[in-house]
Amino acid sequence: MEFEGKAWVFGDNINTDIISPPQYMELSIEEAAAYSMQAVHETFAKQVGEGDIFIAAHNLGSGSSRETSPLTLKYLGIKVVVAKSFARIFYRNCINLGIPAIECPDWDGISEGDQVSIDVEKGELLNLTRNTRFKCSKLPDNIMQMIAAGGLVNYLKTIKGE
């Protein structure tokens, strides 16, 4: 499974309240998505496009356990999330929603706007703009099956024969 898109690059400690601000929790995901990342990148939600790739440094997704943060990213068109390290519950929420969450501890040299490609089965991130390559974690086959099905709920339906 490969993904290619524009890189959106963020630093350390991008928490769930930054990704999906809690003051908009009562709105639908579609409405709340307009405020995603506003605290650190005012125009992110307006500029992010279908297939873009979200890249962050350490401790991505710390904070609350609610699924709204990865769901917001998915709604905005993010197809894969890459980080040097993840908060475990955010990582699992991404997987449960069908978003590959890839650990890539040494992606330095990727800038916002670079065109990148990631092969989640090989565990390889390519910066197509700068012609550089980075080794990343590989997702196990059972997780890949879940992602291919569109997330945990859809995966469970397929194995139950629904």
Rank of each mutant, 00 (worst) to 15 (best):
I18E: 05
S20M: 03
P21S: 10
Q23H: 13
Y24W: 13
Y24L: 02
L27M: 14
L27S: 06
S28I: 01
E30G: 04
E31A: 09
A32H: 11
A33N: 08
A33G: 06
A33M: 07
A33F: 08
A34L: 12
S36R: 09
Q38G: 06
Q38A: 14
A39R: 11
V40D: 09
H41V: 10
F44I: 01
F44A: 06
K46C: 00
K46V: 00
Q47V: 05
Q47M: 13
E50D: 15
D52T: 04
F54A: 01
F54L: 00
F54R: 01
A57H: 14
G61M: 02
G63Q: 03
G63T: 06
R66C: 11
S69V: 03
T72H: 12
T72D: 11
K74Y: 03
K74N: 04
Y75W: 09
L76S: 08
G77D: 05
I78F: 03
I78P: 02
V80A: 09
V82Y: 07
A83K: 04
K84L: 03
S85Q: 08
F86G: 00
A87E: 04
A87L: 01
R88L: 07
I89S: 03
F90L: 02
Y91C: 05
Y91R: 09
N93L: 03
C94V: 01
I95E: 03
N96W: 07
L97R: 13
G98H: 10
I99R: 07
E103F: 09
P105E: 07
D106M: 12
D108C: 11
I110S: 10
S111G: 04
E112D: 15
E112Y: 13
E112K: 14
G113M: 03
G113S: 06
Q115W: 10
S117I: 06
I118H: 08
I118S: 08
D119M: 04
V120A: 08
G123E: 01
E124I: 15
L125W: 05
L125N: 02
L125Q: 02
L125E: 00
L128H: 13
N131G: 13
T132H: 01
R133C: 12
C136S: 14
K138E: 14
L139K: 02
D141A: 15
